[in-house]
């Protein structure tokens, strides 16, 4: 007898992402409601240069990376 295979974590993740992407089309924040969203306080990276310098200082002391951009060059990792 062949046992039915359970969906893998990857399959479930893909389904969840598809539902989420389909769902965002239903989200309607109207232009006149965007005053708070347009405020600098709602930006994830309001000061990109200062944020990049802080990130540069922190990530050079850690073994991991990611989540905040791939640009930039050099080591500066003494």
């Amino acid at each position: 007898m062949t046992r039915a295979r359970l969906p893998t974590t990857r399959t479930l993740s893909a389904i969840a992402i598809c539902f989420a992407l389909a769902g965002v089309g239903c989200v309607t924040v109207k232009p006149q409601q965007r005053s708070v969203l347009a405020d600098p306080i709602m930006q994830f990276e309001g000061d990109p240069q200062a944020a990049a310098q802080l990130r540069h200082a922190i990530e050079n002391r850690e073994g991991s990376y990611g989540g905040s951009g791939v640009s930039g060059g050099g080591c500066g990792c003494n």
Binding site: V24, V27, T28, P31, V70, S71, G72, G73, G74, C75
Partner: peptide
């Protein structure tokens, strides 16, 4: 393009990005 130079390290970095808004700029 970013160039970086120090005594013991040289770096050339090329960066490309594409960004788009959808659903009345909510996405």
């Amino acid at each position: 393009y970013t160039y970086s130079t120090e005594n013991d390290y040289r770096s050339h970095n090329l960066y490309v990005a594409a960004r788009t808004d959808a659903y009345e700029h909510n996405t």
